[in-house]
Structures are given as structure tokens and as C-alpha cells.
Design a protein around this nucleic acid. Structure first.
Length: 471
DNA sequence: CTATGGCACGGATT
DNA sequence: AATCCGTGCCATAG
């Protein structure tokens, strides 16, 4: 199939040398995936393929030192250069509060309404309960605090709604077991126990974890592993591993984990996919950009599996394992490929738009995906996919969709805003259109009207008697 | 009569 | 091929 060969060549920049047939199909499958799908694919692949592993520690891509977080402070201090410096970093752990999210959200009316936590839960609960129970569920959801814990005692809710306590408890039990697992618990411990329980049902558990939570809660909090080890008659090491298990797999605040997961699943807003910042060591130095990759730490082919495979005698088994190795290598390659493309795209965007990134909407220079595609010698659709549904955090803390950079009219809208803000008497759309020419934009009167409504500004006749803004 | 918003068309972009 | 965007035309409100 020559078309496939050329296509792979085009995407991967690879030579059209012979590849095994199995490889070809697999490669095509992977390449056809959009970026986000590749992330879910990664999760599957890593659980299925023993030859694929994730390095635990993060290493700086430049100095190869193990570092606590990106970017590597040592290297940052050293780096010079004219263009922006782009890293591929592990998935961001930086999250944003609901307020920050809401504030950002209200400024961009193009985005679809976010699902509230209550809606999210209710959707899952609704099909399996009667209408009566639904009312209870709604009430329970209305009485959650910001961490996702229940404010009232179940008995209070029962008496308020005049239903039996048993029934109320029943509904709460259901809610606790849907997506943000442990939501509507009374306290942290209960919440953790539910999560542990659910993990056990999936066959994932740690023998000590349950005891640790119920009996040694206090000592666990103080990280007093010695006492626990003595009382349980096990080694400190075992206790430590149990604590590790708890820390890794359980989340004390259900609401928070919900939002983080939601951000993961939809790739939206709470966690940016890219972050631009000023160099903390050199204010006037090049901008530092991090592209957060799903492959946190470094995805790699397990070297232990590789050496093991060499020792296998049985030829059939050996082939089987070799296949795993090949697949893992391919996957790593695809992942790197994608990260690399992302890196190049973002680098060019940042290089072209520093005024916008450091300044305001007015400073956005119009550009199209096609232009970038030509300059980077990538396919247009590669850019489209890389940019779609991704967000970028700017140095001023705003998180905006990456597609903003390709908004043809953002700068003009900003100009409209300033013209109207500065007006002394209400200007008609016609007048605004005329004034825009001074700013270098030529647009029709009708278009001004559209921008104005996009900005949520009333028409001139309704603005007429407003006092000019005293700034 | 003037200013504005709805609708729909065509060209650009994805 | 599908979608987005700017614009012209026309109806309506004040």
C-alpha cells in the first residue's frame, strides 16, 4: 500500500524503508488518533503492555539531573537565547480554584457551560433511582460543602424531607459510589474508606491500608510509621508502602478529585495544557514555555523486560514478548513524535505573539493555522488537532484556549471595546466603524454591531445617558 | 428617517 | 466536506 507508506513518511518524517506489516497497521492506528485519544490510548497501553513503563523520577531534558519540578531551575538560570525556550514537562499538577475558573469562564461566552458537580452526580444517579429518591438525592447534593462533604447529618435530611432515615442513607450510599467516589461522605476518613472499598472490588488493594485508616488514623497523620509498625508487628517498610498506596490511589477531597479528573477527561480549563511564563531568573530573558504531556515522567521501554526477553529459551514465548517490546518502542516513538510536534507548534506561536502574551487582546497579530503549517512543514490538520481543545496559561494567570491565537477578530473587538469605553457621547455603530479606521481596521457597520453584541455592550441608544467612565 | 438585529449568502478557513 | 466569519439586504422599533 504505497499511500500508507507516504502518509507515514509525511507524518513521521520517517524514511520509507520496509516495516513489518503488523507494525504498519499499528502505526496507522496510532497516527490516526487525535492527540487526546492518544492520551487514553496511553493509559490502556501502559496497563496492557508490560514492556512499557513510566520512569518515576523526572529528569531535566537538558542537564539530565533528577529534578523536583519543571522547569529545571539550574538550567533556567543558565539558558540564553533569543527565541522562547520550550520544555515538554510532566502533566501539570497546577490547578485552579472554582473562582478563578468562573472568572475566566464569564469572559468567554463562546464556551459551553461547564457541568456543575451536582449535575455531574445527578446524571449518574438518576437512572437507578425512583423519583422520590431523586428528590432526596437533589437535596443531598445541595448540601455539600466545597470539598464535597455532606454538611448535614443524614437524619436531619430525612426529617426535613419527611422520609425514612433508611431510605436517605440508601441514597447517600449510592451517591458515594458514583464518579467522584466518596462524595457526600461525612469526613475524610469515611471518604477514603469508600474509595478503598471500591478499589478492592477492582482487585486493587493493600493488605494494611484498611487497618491503617481505621485504627491508626492519628499516627498516619503524623507519619509516625514506627509506632504503627510496632503495634501491627510488621516492618516499617511495609507500613511505608501502605501509606504510599493510600497517598497514590486515594483522594481525601472528593470534589477536588472530581474537578481534576474532569479536566483530564475533557482537557479543559482547570489545568492548562501549556504554560508560558517569564523567566524567573532573568525578567527580560526569553519566555519559558512548558508543554504538559500526558506521559508524565518519561515513558520508556522497560530495560528489565528487554534483558529478560533475551534469556527466554522457548521460541514461541520469545516471539510473544518481542512483540510487546516492539509495540512499546513504537508507542514511545509516537508519543515523542507528538510531543515534539506540539513543542514546535507552541514555540512558533510564542515566538510570533510575544506582545499578545505579555500584553492585551489588542496585541494579537492575526495568523492562520495554514501559515504555521507551511512554516513548520506539518500538515494543516496536525496543527488543528494539536490546538483543538487545548488551553494555555499566560504569565498574567489567564487561561485561554489555544485557538485564541487564531481568532481573526480578537484584536478588532478589543479596539471596539476601548473606543466605546473612551467615548463621551454614545457612538453609533457607524461612527465606531469609522473610528476603527484610525486604528487600522476596515470593517462594515454590520460587523461592528456583531462585535459589540459579542462584547455584551448595549446599542448606542441604550447607552446614551450613561455617565462616561471616570478612570 | 435612523439605528439595529435577523437572515442568509459567499468566500475563507479548517 | 464542513464550518466559521464578514457583509449586504431588509424589516422593525423608536
Amino acid at each position: 500500500m504505497p499511500t500508507i507508506i507516504t502518509k507515514i513518511g509525511q507524518y513521521q518524517g520517517a524514511s520509507t524503508k520496509q516495516m513489518p506489516a503488523a507494525h504498519l497497521t499499528r502505526t496507522m492506528q496510532l497516527l490516526e488518533k487525535t492527540c487526546n485519544e492518544l492520551d487514553t490510548e496511553l493509559a490502556n497501553e501502559i496497563s496492557e503492555n508490560p514492556a512499557l513503563e513510566m520512569a518515576e523520577e523526572c529528569r531535566c531534558p537538558d542537564c539530565k539531573q533528577i529534578i523536583p519540578s519543571y522547569p529545571c531551575q539550574v538550567c533556567l538560570n543558565r539558558l540564553n537565547g533569543s527565541g522562547p525556550i520550550v520544555y515538554v514537562a510532566p502533566r501539570s499538577t497546577k490547578t485552579y480554584s472554582n473562582e478563578e475558573y468562573d472568572e475566566y469562564y464569564s469572559t468567554d461566552n463562546k464556551l459551553k457551560d461547564p457541568e456543575t458537580l451536582s449535575e455531574h452526580i445527578l446524571k449518574q444517579v438518576a437512572p437507578s433511582v425512583s423519583s422520590n429518591e431523586r428528590k432526596i438525592a437533589e437535596h443531598v447534593l445541595a448540601r455539600l460543602n466545597e470539598h464535597g462533604f455532606l454538611i448535614d447529618h443524614p437524619a436531619e435530611i430525612a426529617s426535613y424531607l419527611r422520609v425514612s432515615l433508611d431510605k436517605t442513607k440508601n441514597v447517600i450510599e449510592i451517591i458515594k459510589r458514583v464518579d467522584p467516589i466518596g462524595v457526600a461522605s461525612q469526613d475524610v476518613m469515611e471518604c477514603l474508606l469508600i474509595q478503598l472499598d471500591m478499589l478492592e472490588q477492582d482487585g486493587k488493594t493493600h493488605p494494611l491500608a484498611h487497618n491503617l485508616l481505621t485504627k491508626y488514623w492519628e499516627q498516619l497523620g503524623k507519619r509516625d510509621f514506627k509506632t504503627i509498625a510496632r503495634k501491627c508487628n510488621v516492618s516499617v517498610q511495609t507500613v511505608r508502602s501502605a501509606a504510599q498506596f493510600i497517598k497514590r490511589n486515594l483522594s481525601p477531597y472528593p470534589a477536588q478529585s472530581h474537578w481534576n479528573n474532569a479536566a483530564n477527561a475533557t482537557g479543559r480549563y482547570f489545568r492548562p495544557d501549556v504554560e508560558v511564563m517569564k523567566n524567573p531568573h532573568k525578567q527580560d530573558g526569553p519566555l519559558v514555555v512548558q508543554v504538559f504531556s500526558a506521559a508524565q515522567g518519561w515513558l520508556r521501554v522497560s530495560s528489565s523486560v528487554r534483558t529478560m526477553v533475551n534469556k527466554i529459551e522457548d521460541p514461541e514465548k520469545k516471539d510473544e514478548w518481542s512483540a510487546y517490546l516492539e509495540r512499546a518502542a513504537l508507542f514511545v516513538k509516537c508519543m515523542r513524535q507528538r510531543d515534539n510536534a506540539m513543542k514546535r507548534i507552541v514555540k512558533l506561536i510564542v515566538k510570533r505573539q510575544p506582545q499578545f502574551i505579555l500584553g492585551t487582546d489588542k496585541d494579537l497579530i492575526p495568523m492562520t493555522r495554514a501559515e504555521l503549517a507551511i512554516e513548520l512543514e506539518l500538515h494543516e490538520s496536525t496543527i488543528s488537532r494539536a490546538v483543538a481543545n487545548k488551553t494555555i496559561a499566560l504569565p498574567n494567570g489567564r487561561i485561554i484556549p489555544l485557538s485564541t491565537f487564531f481568532d481573526r477578530s480578537l484584536a478588532i473587538r478589543a479596539a471596539v471595546q476601548t473606543i466605546i469605553d473612551d467615548e463621551t457621547t454614545a457612538m453609533t455603530d457607524e461612527q465606531v466603524a469609522h473610528r476603527l479606521v484610525d486604528h487600522g481596521y476596515k470593517v462594515a457597520r454590520r460587523t461592528v454591531a456583531k462585535y459589540r453584541s459579542m462584547l455584551g455592550i448595549l446599542p448606542a441608544n441604550l447607552r446614551a445617558r450613561q455617565i462616561p467612565r471616570a478612570v
